[in-house]
Simulated assay, not measured.
Amino acid sequence: MERFFGSLKSEWVPETGYSSEHEARADVQRYVTRYNTSRPHSYNDYRSPVAMERMAA
Rank of each mutant, 00 (worst) to 15 (best):
T33E: 15
G6H: 09
E2C: 06
R25Y: 06
S10R: 12
H22I: 06
R25A: 11
R47S: 05
S19M: 08
A51R: 02
T16E: 15
N36A: 09
T33F: 15
E21Y: 10
A57E: 07
E15W: 10
M1S: 14
S7I: 03
F4I: 05
A56E: 15
T33V: 14
M52H: 12
W12H: 15
M55F: 12
Y35A: 12
Y31S: 10
R34E: 15
R34N: 08
T33C: 11
F4L: 11
D45M: 00
N36K: 12
S7M: 08
M1Y: 00
A51T: 00
Y46W: 08
E23D: 05
G17K: 02
M55E: 14
E21N: 12
K9H: 11
V28D: 00
R25P: 00
K9N: 13
R25N: 12
H41T: 07
S48Y: 09
Y43I: 11
F5Y: 12
R47A: 01
P49K: 03
F4Q: 10
P40E: 11
M52L: 10
R25G: 01
A26L: 12
G6C: 11
E53H: 07
W12K: 03
D27T: 11
S10W: 06
Y46F: 07
P40C: 07
R30K: 15
D27A: 14
P49F: 01
A24S: 00
D27Q: 10
V13Y: 12
F5V: 04
V32K: 14
D27G: 12
E23F: 04
Y18H: 01
S19H: 06
D27V: 04
F5H: 12
V50G: 00
R47M: 04
V50M: 14
E2Y: 09
R34Y: 15
P49G: 03
F5E: 06
H22E: 14
P14T: 04
L8P: 00
S19R: 13
V50N: 09
S7Y: 02
R25M: 07
V32E: 13
T33G: 03
N44R: 00
